[in-house]
């Protein structure tokens, strides 16, 4: 089993709803976005395009972050999900350097969303899930996946731009769409074999 995702850039509206969905589901602290939307501009006026594309942990089959982790904190499950064990993580941040996608964050200390005004009750509750001194990244919402739910970004996408499922199963929706639309991996040349595929706009 290899859990993965296809992101259809023909559907993506660049609206940032997935970024908010990730933040809302995981309660991430200020400045930490386990999922972001990048916008790449090409061309010169008036022939110019700007394509929005979401990025997050690619849950690579051969994760560069795992290879450099000195404590074995970064692990990969049998279903392909790459996770960080914060009890083993010592916060050395080698993984942040090694990740080709810039999707890992170091949580140095608890910060408030309203600086100098204390944590909101929401933050008090949610930041318990975010220990300091360790690295964080997208987990494919493993806590949802284990209950049979889709990751929050997928479940909430207003345009249904994302398909999530088992890439090892040729009959799965995600495998079919990656095959039919010739899904591409970001920076495939690095050989990390990401499990997130992009379908061209």
């Amino acid at each position: 089993m290899r859990l993965g995702m296809a992101i259809d850039l023909k559907r993506c509206a660049g609206c940032y709803a997935c970024v908010a969905a990730c933040k809302a589901e995981n309660g991430t602290p200020p400045g930490i976005f386990l999922r972001r939307v990048m916008k790449e501009e090409a061309g010169t006026f008036p022939r110019v395009r700007r394509v929005p594309y979401p990025i997050q942990c690619m849950h690579c089959q051969d994760p560069a972050c795992k290879a450099v982790c000195p404590t074995g904190a970064t692990t990969q499950r049998a279903d392909g999900i790459v996770l960080v064990d914060d009890e083993k993580c010592v916060g050395c941040r080698y993984c942040i350097m090694a990740c080709p996608y810039g999707v890992r964050f170091y949580h140095a200390k608890i910060r408030e969303y309203y600086p100098g005004q204390g944590l909101t009750v929401y933050e008090e509750l949610m930041y318990k899930l975010h220990p300091t001194g360790v690295t964080e990244k997208c987990t494919f919402c493993v806590h949802r996946v284990e209950k049979g739910l889709e990751p929050a970004c997928v479940a909430n996408c207003p345009t249904k731009a994302m398909t999530f499922g088992d890439l090892d199963d040729p009959e799965s929706e995600v495998s079919r769409i990656v095959r039919d639309r010739r899904g591409m991996q970001l920076r495939a040349e690095l050989g990390t074999d990401p499990s997130v595929f992009y379908l061209s706009p």
């Binding site: 609206c15 970024v19 908010a20 969303y113 309203y114 909101t120 909430n156």
Partner: peptide, 18 residues
């Protein structure tokens, strides 16, 4: 059946200390 970034951020309106 889905909700935009603004709608999801209603939490911060409710708990804004200001």
């Amino acid at each position: 059946g889905r909700i935009c970034a603004k709608g999801q951020s209603g939490i911060m309106l409710l708990y804004d200390p200001n």
